[in-house]
């Protein structure tokens, strides 16, 4: 039986396969080079809002994409070593992030309505359906 979502966020078609998991929401921007220790998938930039936390296996929500071209290779490399995020959702992303997600086959969505950073909270259980451009909140987490 398919679970009925509590709330549906709609956008344009994204990339990558469908995925379900616990949401992890970060109000900051993201770059795999600038912010991460890519060997472990842990945020290593002291000024980042998520410093010290890990994105491994998480359905990550960020504000925007930042920085240079290296995030693309980094996503493939992290996936091959088992330290990649399960999925990436942005308010607004950039080409590098999409190019990298396509290569690594990691689901990615952006430009959703309502705004994911206002409506999704860390710990919520979500389903991403990139082909349809949908993020569905299935269950609220303990913190919501």
């Amino acid at each position: 039986m398919v679970e009925e979502p509590l709330l549906v966020l709609r956008g344009h078609p994204g990339v990558g396969p469908d995925v379900e998991g616990e949401a992890w929401v970060c109000q900051d921007n993201f770059s795999a080079r600038y912010d991460l220790d890519r060997r472990t998938g842990t945020f290593s930039r002291r000024s980042h809002a998520c410093y010290g936390q890990s994105l491994v296996g998480r359905v990550c929500f960020f504000n925007g994409a930042k920085g240079g071209v290296s995030t693309s290779w980094a996503l493939l490399d992290m996936k091959s070593r088992g330290v990649a995020p399960a999925a990436l959702v942005f308010r607004l992303t950039n080409p590098v992030m999409v190019q990298g997600a396509v290569l690594a086959d990691i689901p990615l969505l952006d430009r959703l309505s309502p705004d994911p950073l206002d409506t999704v909270h860390t710990g919520d259980y979500v389903r991403l359906r990139p082909r349809e451009g949908l993020v569905e909140i299935l269950r609220r987490g303990a913190g919501t």
Partner: peptide, 22 residues
């Protein structure tokens, strides 16, 4: 990204950020 910023801005050429694989 620096090569793209220079090409677009200073030369008036046209490129997006094309990361390594792209």
């Amino acid at each position: 990204t620096g090569t793209v910023a220079f090409a677009n801005s200073v030369a008036g050429a046209r490129s997006n950020f094309e990361a390594g694989p792209a």
